[in-house]
Nucleic acid binder design. Structure first.
Lengths: 132, 132
DNA sequence: CGGTATCCCGTCAGATACTG
DNA sequence: CAGTATCTGACGGGATACCG
């Protein structure tokens, strides 16, 4: 999604296509998972690391910075002896999760159908291809 | 989104995480745009090319094949003199677009807020960083 | 017309090491 | 604890050329 020129008007969206601008960022490897993990609770960097499990420090750091830039989350630094940094969702972030959670639910519901479609497709491929 | 191991159980989703499995595929450069372009109308390969505008033959071909594999679209080949191939949405494809269109609408609505967040962030960066 | 095959390069993400 | 810096390999996607 990231290369489609945002500066050129595509056929159906004018100017810097908002959909791309938004989905390019959130559609990456980790953004959605981080937002989902922050739902309902403020969390520290290392807690996020542990809960997500297989994300590297670098990617978590980058992802958090981008989400903060775009206004989805807020970063709070406490000037303490061992540094403490907490992250939580902003109103924009929570707002975003509403339609997003519908999509997540759709994915959950229809995942079997997609698996089945893939199975059927590979079957068809080994047989002969239909025509109209 | 594509590298997070689907085979390992992450903290909040079990087994091959459906959300990743679905969003990894449609979260690419072109899938969503192709689905959106096919809304309400069956279209031929070259029509899609022209309407999308800046997609290459190869990427359109790949994208269509993936979408067909996953059951979002149907491909119909007419055995005619100049070959004719038409694509249209399946029920699954139309079903998918429902939550997706809510997300698209969200992006449209909140795009200004995000632009503003980015602007504010870069302002803050040049000044001094706040702490709590 | 509707593709596939090949080449090639830019970006992205992991590993590792270092810092305030 | 919470990051940043650097290096590197993998991969996505464009350009081009060819095929049924």
């Amino acid at each position: 999604m990231s290369k489609h020129r945002n500066d050129a008007a595509s056929t159906e969206f004018e100017q810097p296509c908002p959909v791309r601008d938004v989905l390019d960022r959130i559609g990456d490897q980790w953004s959605l998972l981080v937002l989902l993990t922050l739902q309902g609770e403020t969390k520290r960097f290392n807690v996020l690391m542990r809960e997500i499990g297989d994300i590297s420090k670098q990617m978590l750091s980058r992802t958090l910075k981008q989400l903060e830039q775009d206004g989805y989350i807020r970063r709070t630094v406490y000037a303490e002896v061992p540094p403490r940094v907490e992250y939580d969702l902003t109103d924009l972030g929570r707002s975003f999760l509403e339609p997003m959670k519908l999509l997540v639910a759709w994915a959950d519901t229809h995942h079997p159908a997609i698996r089945e479609a893939r199975r059927a497709y590979s079957q068809r491929a080994s047989g002969g291809r239909r025509e109209a």
